[in-house]
Write a protein that binds this DNA or RNA. Structure first.
Lengths: 217, 217
DNA sequence: CGGCGAATTGAAACCGCTCAAGTAAAGTGG
DNA sequence: CCACTTTACTTGAGCGGTTTCAATTCGCCG
């Protein structure tokens, strides 16, 4: 599906919303075990979803940004398998299943919209597997930054300057490494001239080099 | 779902089969990109599914044994995202969707059967995530062996002596480590008295110790 | 029996982790 | 708005585990 077709479908869902939720940084959008009552889209801000592995440790499953659909885990399982926590003040639009179903009955675009939803779900599964597949921490970090930049670009942000909202600790948890390793990976990527980062602002300087670091020959 | 209910549903599907495939070790059951034309179950033997990551490297996604449903990737995506290769001479039973659909129309157990399929799909996703989550190679190996033993036991094999059909290289690829590391992990597990392994035959000697190695305190 | 891939084993390099100390940034209350 | 507190981040040294490279041995199949 093209980027513009995807945007159209997301906008369509966004306009269908019958509820707007304001969420402060650190607050929960939903908890593990909650029943799913609506489809939710991020209007602004960003969140993380967190699940509990069998060792009882918290593990970040995904980072969600503006225009992402959130809570898809529950569409498959009927209840949420994760906690969703805002990593900055955010606004989330919700569509009750009731309203969604009413609309889909008389909407010819429904199959395309469901395809949008399914594609997002699959793409995210893909990403997390891909990131974990990289053995070297620098590759993981490069992969993470490239993915984030692409996603930001797709929703209209300039890829010249990306705002990183998550903490090193959260990124580390997501990538399966330690916080110190994130510092060192950023330092290394910067030294090599692939990226530049100041405080929470980042830019990719050498895209090809970044890709080479993700997939070494 | 209980083990016996699961077995009943698998047997039901097995009896529905309208085609039997004999596959020699190393042969392909299907290729990446093939359209899915039927539901397949392993009657005997074992196979591996292999996908290509973006770096162009082959990566083993799952090992399938007797009574496993194979090719589920295509039920979600309409075409196969993996190659399926026999790791020993195997027999696969196939049910055309045509026949499957005819049967489900008048079968009251259909929802339970679909649940069996969905549960297998989910359980496998779970396993691969769990295995990759373990950072130490010995934990990965222990996790892999425990899972394999449990699966063998569930389909009626004695858990006193398990036949390992895959090569070290394949296991290494699956676990995201190197072949030499598999050798050393087995050596270490053996030294500790958790398992005994001779050639391709293995047994778990100390189940609790094995679990402790998977999840260190 | 010969050959060849599979498995084992050793040594050394590499990389991420732990621990620790110090600096920077963000949040809090007066 | 500043001082204070807390949290986030950086950086270094040493350790442990995995990879790499290389040399053998083992085991299977023709």
């Amino acid at each position: 599906m093209t980027t513009t077709a995807l945007k159209k479908n997301i906008d369509f869902l966004m306009n269908l919303a019958d509820n707007t939720l304001m969420i402060k940084k650190g607050d929960y959008l939903y908890h593990r075990g909650d029943a799913s009552t609506c489809i939710m889209l991020i209007f602004s801000g960003s969140l993380k979803t967190v699940d509990l592995n069998e060792g009882g440790e918290l593990r970040i499953k995904e980072f969600l940004i503006k225009q992402d659909i959130i809570g898809l885990d529950a569409m498959m399982d009927t209840y949420h398998s994760t906690d969703a926590i805002a990593i900055e003040d955010s606004i989330v639009k919700a569509i009750s299943y009731e309203k969604f179903n009413l609309f889909t009955l008389r909407s010819p675009e429904i199959s395309e919209i469901l395809e949008t939803v399914r594609a997002q779900f699959m793409a995210r599964k893909e990403e997390s597997r891909r990131v974990l597949d990289n053995l070297r921490s620098e590759s993981k970090m490069a992969s993470f930054l490239l993915n984030l930049t692409n996603r930001m670009g797709r929703i209209g942000y300039s890829t010249e300057r990306i705002q990183i909202k998550m903490t090193h600790k959260d990124i580390a948890n997501f990538l399966g490494v330690k916080g110190e390793t994130i510092s060192r990976a950023i330092h290394s990527l910067t030294t090599k001239g692939t990226i530049i980062m100041k405080h929470k602002t980042m830019a990719i300087l050498d895209m090809q080099l970044l890709k080479d670091i993700i997939r070494p020959v």
